[in-house]
Simulated scan of single mutants.
Amino acid sequence: MLKSFDIYSQNNILKIIVALNLLLVGTGSLLYTNRLINKLELREEQYIQLYAKSIAYLTDTTHSNSGDLNFVTSEILQANQTIPAIYVNPDGEISMPLNFTLSATMTDEEKQQYLREKRDEMRKNHMPVVVEIGNGVRGLVYYNNSGSLRQLNYFPYALLAILTSLGVLAYLAFSSSRRAEQNRVWVGLAKETAHQLGTPMSSLMAWVEYMRSDPEQFDGSITDEIEKDVQRLETITARFSSIGSVPTLKDEDLNDVVQQFTGYLARRISTKVKMSVASQLPAGQTVKMNKLLFEWVIENICKNAVDAMKGVGELRLNMIMLPHQEVAIDITDTGKGISKANMQKVFNPGYSTKKRGWGLGLTLAKRIVEEYHDGRLYVKSSDVGKGTTFRIVLNTD
């Protein structure tokens, strides 16, 4: 059984490492911030405890030197400029509210109602602090976190959002850089291949002309076949030269292009593969295309299909009209099929299920269709062990 490989699988490992590092930084920051918040909450609670004791001193008339105590406790009360607090005396009356903004237009009843609502809200967040006034009499101090501490509670989430954004940006930048590098490699490889083919083709053409000049010595039919092969090499060279350049698109009859090329291809694939072409397109339906490159797309998909069938099976091409002025070419084989996990990978550069092959055919086909012809190429359907259907969608505008 053939095993698939992906020459870019190591890049996925690098992405995982980057993601883990971001996760560790985010988790560490979250834990540290939570620890800091807990310390600040404890500090504010201790401050409220002190605040409660100062109220106890102010309301307890049994203490001596009340003047000095009044001065000290007043300083403590005035020092709290951030923590909202409400004192409820033993009779249940609200007094001494701190750090609340009460409108001057509010009536006393409205102020009391507002403070009662705040008291109920505070009760949900913190247990009230008991104020021991003396003789078993007790009051209660309700409080809430300061504005700074409440803002700090949101900091871990903001930090995680920032780290997530940085991670997404890093991923996009990495993917874009990788795609650009891949494109440069494939374009350079294609143009270098075309350049290297030029010299032997020129030599072959010269030999063909030489053989034609002496028909008695060289069989004309053999010369004709050699010339066809040379012309085929010229077509391949033209295709490779077009990679990386903006191709010229012309209106071509889609039925004719597909019929002619599949007729040529049928004579060069396994005789055990039954190849058929059907069309529901209107007669003379044209599409803007570069014929050489588009034939390359058909060839790559069909040859992959023949390989998937191991040279035995059925290969069907069906052309249909779609809504929105689009046409589709469905290429269906009866091969081994593609698993759901690999449906997207088949278009990745370097991905192949063959021992011999660089995994470039479908990658180049997808680029030709989508970047040069403004169309779409994708796996329409596939069943493991039954076969696969690739769909090419082109605009007729």
Rank of each mutant, 00 (worst) to 15 (best):
S4R: 11
D6H: 02
Q10L: 12
N11G: 09
K15I: 11
I17N: 05
A19D: 03
S29E: 03
N34D: 10
L36I: 10
L42M: 12
K53M: 13
Y57T: 12
Y57M: 14
T61W: 15
S66T: 14
S74N: 13
S74F: 07
I76G: 04
I83Q: 02
S95N: 14
E109W: 08
E109R: 11
R116Y: 15
R123T: 15
M127S: 11
V129F: 04
L140Y: 05
L149C: 11
L149W: 04
Y154H: 13
Y157D: 08
I162K: 10
T164H: 00
S165D: 07
V168W: 12
Y171W: 11
A173M: 11
E181R: 15
Q182P: 00
N183S: 12
N183K: 14
M201G: 03
S202C: 14
L204Y: 12
M211Q: 15
P247S: 00
T248S: 04
D251A: 14
V258W: 06
Q259T: 10
S270F: 01
V273G: 03
M275S: 04
K288I: 00
K291M: 03
L292S: 08
I298C: 00
I301R: 04
K303Q: 09
N304R: 08
N304A: 09
V306E: 02
G313V: 09
D330A: 02
V346L: 06
G361M: 07
L362N: 01
A365C: 07
E371I: 01
Y372I: 08
V379C: 08
V384Y: 02
K386T: 09
T396D: 10
D397Q: 12
